[in-house]
């Protein structure tokens, strides 16, 4: 399976994602933001980092880059797109995913491991997880506070477009276990066609028990199988 990782000035998780993808047997290519052509891809990953120094709004400048025009075209023709952290912010700024990512409620950059509950696994990114699985992934962001209009929030809940929510070790989802203030503890969302996933947590950091855990592997494996 062919994957592509888009690299912007300020991306800093691009090589982590590439390592994860290669380890899991994807044939991966890196593509610079100024390029106009995408290699043939089954999965395009927009990695975490601080593209363009987070100028204006996180992801706003990257969303207007050359390569994003191609990513939008690929997304509209059904290619799988995964945006992690800053990648999620970029997908929001392109309009491929709806809503906004505001500054964290406590105004702090949060870097820690958090528990997530798999709310919906009926999609190509999560099918290897079981519904209600509790997984432990790392978050590291300043703007991850998901906000959207009430009717869109309902649409997300009703149409199984929320794969992950923040929870505690036992799986309860409440405000106490909401690290950044996201509506309904949302950690990631899908578009209506379920081929685009944006998420704040970093699955690529959880692929090796030697340095963390392996809870992120099944996300990439889901795409593979």
């Amino acid at each position: 399976m062919n994957s592509t990782v888009i690299v912007f000035p300020g991306s800093n998780c691009d090589r982590d994602v590439a390592t994860a993808l290669t380890k899991l047997q994807f044939k991966n290519k890196m593509v610079w933001h100024k390029d106009n052509n995408l290699p043939k891809s089954d999965l395009i990953v927009i990695p975490g980092g601080f593209s363009y120094g987070d100028y204006l709004r996180s992801g706003a400048i990257a969303a207007k880059s050359n390569i994003l025009k191609e990513v939008i075209r690929a997304a509209n023709s059904g290619c799988l797109i995964l945006g992690i952290c800053n990648g999620f912010q970029i997908l929001i700024e392109t309009g491929l995913l709806q809503g906004a990512l505001l500054r964290n409620r406590n105004l702090k950059f949060i870097s820690k491991d958090v528990y997530l509950k798999v709310i919906n696994n009926d999609n190509k990114f999560c099918k290897n997880y079981k519904k209600n699985n509790i997984i432990n992934l790392n978050i590291a962001h300043n703007e991850g506070n998901y906000f959207t209009q009430k009717d869109h929030l309902k649409e997300l809940e009703d149409n199984a477009l929320i794969p992950f929510k923040y929870c505690d070790k036992e799986g309860s989802i409440n405000d106490k276990n909401n690290p950044n203030g996201s509506m309904n503890n949302i950690a990631g969302i899908l578009n209506n066609k379920k081929n685009i996933l944006g998420m704040m947590p970093h699955p690529e950091r959880m692929i090796d028990s030697l340095i963390s855990n392996t809870d992120g592997i099944e996300l990439f494996n889901s795409v593979l199988n």
Partner: peptide, 8 residues
């Protein structure tokens, strides 16, 4: 087109 995120 760029400067404002009209959602928020």
């Amino acid at each position: 087109k760029l400067l404002v995120n009209l959602i928020i």
